[in-house]
């Protein structure tokens, strides 16, 4: 056990799985860096340093830098997965899914079904998401609802370094294609993370706070905000359960419904745009399955239905904040 950043936790998961299984390879733009260049090799280790150190240990045969040809290399990762490797391909920012989505949703996501159950595609696509970096409309989106929409894909959103390591190892060992979404403002977050490999199963929500008054369901960075709110309101006598589903597909609907049955009040916090996102999905689930348990209308805390703005002042207004979550919790609690 030692203190590790979100970045280190993912890096350690990749390194440990690469040591364990020679079929695991890593690929992406500048995942090592410096290829063909006169200076330092492994110059970047990915744009924010997550894969740094893998190439020196495993060589360029297993840590492949790619041209800027996402459709080709993400597709190659899909094809390699279907034929015996276990690739972890990096799509640098999730926003770039636009140039390679076919290979993910029409190919990887459908092989198993279309081929009558015979195909196995153990692929991981690692990708950065989320606002807060002043990175503007094409480098800040969440987009996980779009992957969640596709049958055949599994979708993982770790909310802390501990979660990231266990979920990444699970993702690599999982035989289905997995989209693994890393919130870009969380890379320097630190917490105690076991040194040895461990897995966290998909589809099992984690209760990061337990309380009887309000259920908050949140994803990724929003789990942290929700924890802050729960801790603050606890002191005022409003106790919250915070549910981190960890994966949007599969989704642990049982836990969500049990928590709502206990509290009768639900706030869903989702950094994705508000139409057809996880907040609407979970609200619909609860409205359908647990209507009778509800003591107040469900509240959703999301950004507005706009692209992510560049200006820091606008971006700060755009992102759900602890203040907005707190207001929603108070509203459903009637306090």
């Amino acid at each position: 056990m030692s203190n590790k950043s979100f970045r280190q936790a993912i890096n350690e998961a990749l390194a440990q799985e690469m040591r364990r299984d020679p079929a695991v390879i890593v690929m992406g733009e500048d995942n090592a860096g410096g290829l063909g260049a006169p200076g330092e090799d492994d110059a970047w280790g990915g744009v924010l340093g997550v894969t740094k150190g893998l190439m020196p240990e495993f060589g360029r045969e297993r840590v492949l830098d790619t041209p800027i040809s996402e459709s080709a290399f993400i597709g190659a990762a899909v094809g390699a997965a279907a034929t015996g490797l276990r690739p972890v391909a990096e799509l640098m920012f999730v926003d770039f899914m636009g140039v390679c989505f076919d290979q993910i949703f029409n190919q990887a996501g459908k092989f198993k079904y279309m081929f009558g159950g015979k195909a196995v595609t153990p692929l991981v696509v690692r990708t950065m998401f989320g606002a807060g970096f002043r990175a503007a409309s094409q480098h800040s989106q969440c987009l996980y609802p779009i992957f969640t929409h596709i049958p055949g894909l599994k979708v993982v959103i770790p909310s802390s370094p501990y979660e990231a390591k266990g979920l990444m190892i699970q993702a690599i060992r999982d035989d289905d294609p997995v989209i693994f979404l890393e919130h870009k403002v969380m890379y320097d977050d630190e917490e105690e993370v076991p040194d040895e490999p461990y897995t966290i199963p998909f589809g099992e929500a984690n209760l990061t706070r337990e309380g009887g008054d309000v259920t908050i369901v949140a994803f990724g960075r929003m789990v942290q905000f929700s924890n802050q709110v729960a801790d603050k309101l606890e002191k005022e006598g409003i106790s919250c359960t915070v549910v981190d589903p960890r994966t949007t597909s599969p989704l642990d609907t049982d836990t969500i419904l049990e928590c709502v049955a206990d509290t009768g009040r639900l706030v869903v916090v989702d950094e994705a745009n508000p139409r057809c996102n996880m907040a609407t999905d979970i609200s619909a689930l609860v409205a359908q399955e647990a209507f009778g348990a509800l003591k107040a209308p469900i509240k959703m805390v999301t950004p507005p239905h706009t692209p992510v703005p560049f200006s820091p002042q606008l971006e700060d207004l755009y992102i759900p904040t602890p203040e907005k979550i707190e207001a929603a919790v108070r509203a459903v609690a009637g306090a």
Binding site: I68, Q138, H139
Partner: peptide
């Protein structure tokens, strides 16, 4: 030039025939 909504990666001025910087390579 874009009301602060675009920033460096999305500067554009269609009135000048400048269809935008681009955050997406290609």
């Amino acid at each position: 030039l874009c009301g602060g909504k675009g920033g460096s990666m999305h500067i554009a001025d269609l009135s000048r025939g400048m269809m935008g910087a681009n955050g997406i390579v290609g």
